[in-house]
Design a protein around this nucleic acid. Structure first.
Length: 584
DNA sequence: GCCGTTTTCGGCCCGACTGTTTTCAGTCG
């Protein structure tokens, strides 16, 4: 799987290099399509190369198969290595500057020999671009601004930050005279984990340019990127690009569909439409010159002979075929959630007492909550030894008696030690209602070591779920090396749940692994990893990941009532003890 | 380079905004 991803990146790079060399447009796209397919599969690269010349993988044909084979035996393939000899990687970096594409980058490289962003900046300062055809004053100043943007805004923002920005922009927009309805589209509406920019659509009864001009009053001039009749782009409070788009009322559905994406979903949808003799654009669905749909999204999908597809599913991962066959899943929804599986209290590194947490959970409408503090090894987070753990258990019993209507589970987030053993002995684990096992050490160990630790932990009858499986912190820390598909298989075998960590900086398990887990019959546990009761609201981000992973209510243990949940917890213990010969 | 309900060749998704080349190319989504 690791090899698959690296190979996909090489394909992507080959496409970039070809575009600089003025390669055939469709050939370049074929490389990108193949890269995209491989980015979204869990299949081993060697398995793909074995298969019936890869026919069942979209965009992987005989040519790609032979490149895969070459890559598997040599670590690279000829087209890629030869192109890289001719074009330094620094040139690819230049192409990432906003408003610089392959054509202009190529001119800079071939006419002036510029091979890095830094060199480009110096060349502009020394006036080397002044006499270059196609590089007027405006273009040059845009490049300088683009270099700054590349540095400042290159990190994608978290979905939680994007939600805040979108709310603020929507509030401002709705306050402008003539604006009727307004809504966020784009990756934010698909609830993608991070956003590169934010798309806002609106309808209005005043010329859009006037509305745009009203909107940008108060923004700094350099924050305004473009200002057109239908679209305006700007940087919101120095952090993120926002695009506003004016939409005609009767084209709302088509526009919302189009600007929600994903790009891959839309391309596939349009191909599907073409096969049916129809044309889809952001203005509607057309047969010949006649518009047959466009007012609502439902209408758009229905006119193409398929069910409405929820935005979270629109990643071209099989949703079009499922919608055409009326086989889309009934996605789990925020209202289905009856409890949170991962909350820290004052006992370790949280800020609230168990009673405060329980009352907050009850206010949300939960039926139960699992208080999972850190275990003894995690000294830095005030991990609990056995004595304090028993105090915590007693306190939970006291609070349980005090607050009616919510079940409090005594849980722990138990460290998986370096050797794969758990941080408490079995007789202590047995006293807990809910155990999530987690890796907090050895992040740089190789894949087989970390995978082995987790698999060993899952074999314990007391481990309910594995927390934040890859350990990534978005924009801060890369995931550790772990063979997720193997762990999913093992989770299925042992009846262990896998956590979807709902903290917006983690969102780990990733949605495509959640989908794989569902396909293998593994249950998912959504935990907010809250350290303050105000963080319990992060549940919605976990639910979004679940929805993006095609999960239904029955796939998510948070939808169980307290009684059903306790039965589920007992089942794994009983099952694994039985397999161990009934001696445990 | 991929692909097939116009099928082994000849197509391959669609449109807006910007800047500059006064009729369009490049970039972006």
């Amino acid at each position: 799987m690791r090899g698959t991803r690296e190979f996909a990146l090489y394909l992507e790079e080959t496409a970039d290099l070809l575009s600089l060399k003025d390669g055939n447009f469709f050939r370049i796209r074929a490389y990108r399509d193949a890269a995209n397919t491989l980015m979204h599969t869990e299949e081993e690269l060697s398995r793909i190369a074995e298969g019936e010349d890869g026919r069942h993988f979209e965009g992987i044909g005989a040519g790609m198969i032979s490149k895969i084979r070459e890559y598997l035996s040599t670590g690279d393939f000829r087209e890629h290595s030869e192109l890289l000899e001719k074009v330094p990687r620094g040139v690819l970096e230049i192409m990432r500057i906003p408003k610089l594409g392959p054509k202009k980058t190529r001119v800079l490289f071939e006419k002036l020999g510029i091979t890095s962003v830094e060199e480009l900046r110096k060349s502009i300062e020394s006036g080397r671009l002044d006499s270059l055809a196609g590089f007027g004053d405006k273009t040059v100043s845009n490049i300088l601004e683009g270099i700054k943007q590349l540095e400042i805004y290159s990190a994608r923002i978290l979905i939680s930050e994007a939600d805040e920005i979108a709310s603020a922009v929507l509030e401002r927009l709705r306050g402008i005279r003539g604006v009727k309805k307004a809504q966020a589209a784009g990756s934010l509406r698909r609830r993608k984990e991070t956003e590169g920019d934010i798309d806002i659509l609106y309808t209005g009864k005043r010329p859009a340019r006037e509305i745009h001009e009203d909107f940008i009053k108060g923004l700094k001039k350099k924050e305004v990127i473009s200002l057109g009749e239908k679209k305006a782009s700007f940087i919101w409070e120095g952090s993120c690009q926002v695009d506003l788009r004016y939409i005609e009322e009767d084209e709302w559905g088509a526009a919302l569909q189009y600007f929600t994406g994903s790009k891959e979903h839309n391309v596939a949808l349009r191909k599907h439409a073409v096969r049916k003799g129809l044309k889809v654009s952001e203005y509607g669905v057309f047969r010949g010159g006649r518009k047959i749909a466009g007012k609502t999204e439902e209408e758009v999908y229905n006119s193409l002979g398929m069910q409405y597809i929820h935005p979270e599913l629109r990643e071209n991962m099989g949703e079009l075929a499922a919608a055409a066959a009326e086989e889309l899943p009934e996605l789990v929804a925020p209202g289905d959630i009856k409890g949170d599986t991962h909350v820290h209290s004052l006992y370790s590194d949280g800020t609230d007492s168990i009673e405060e947490i329980a009352r907050a959970a009850k206010d949300i409408g939960y039926e139960w909550i699992a208080i999972c503090d850190h275990s003894v090894s995690l000294v830095i987070a005030n991990g609990l030894d056995e004595k304090r753990l028993m105090e915590k258990k007693k306190e939970i019993e006291r609070v349980r008696a005090n607050i009616r209507g919510i079940d409090i589970l005594c849980g722990q987030e138990v460290d998986i030690r370096k050797d794969g053993t758990l941080d408490y002995p079995d007789d202590v684990l047995e006293k807990l209602d809910f155990v999530i096992a987690a890796v907090h050490t050895g992040f740089t160990d190789p894949e087989d070591i970390i995978t082995g630790r987790i698999i060993k932990a899952m074999s314990s009858p007391y481990v309910t779920a594995v927390a934040h499986l890859t350990g990534r912190l978005i924009n801060e820390r890369e995931p550790y090396a772990v063979d997720v598909p193997r762990i999913i298989d093992e989770a299925a075998r042992t009846g262990t749940a896998l956590e979807i960590n709902a903290n917006p900086q983690r969102l780990d398990l990733y949605y495509y692994y959640a989908k794989l887990a569902r396909e293998k019959g593994v249950r998912l546990a959504i935990g907010t990893d809250s350290h303050h009761r105000g963080d319990l609201g992060a549940m919605k981000y976990g639910v979004s990941v679940a929805r993006r992973g095609w999960l239904e209510k029955k796939d998510v243990i948070n939808t169980m009532g307290a009684g059903a949940l306790r039965k589920f917890l007992a089942k794994k213990r009983a099952g694994l003890k039985e397999k161990a010969g009934g001696r445990a």
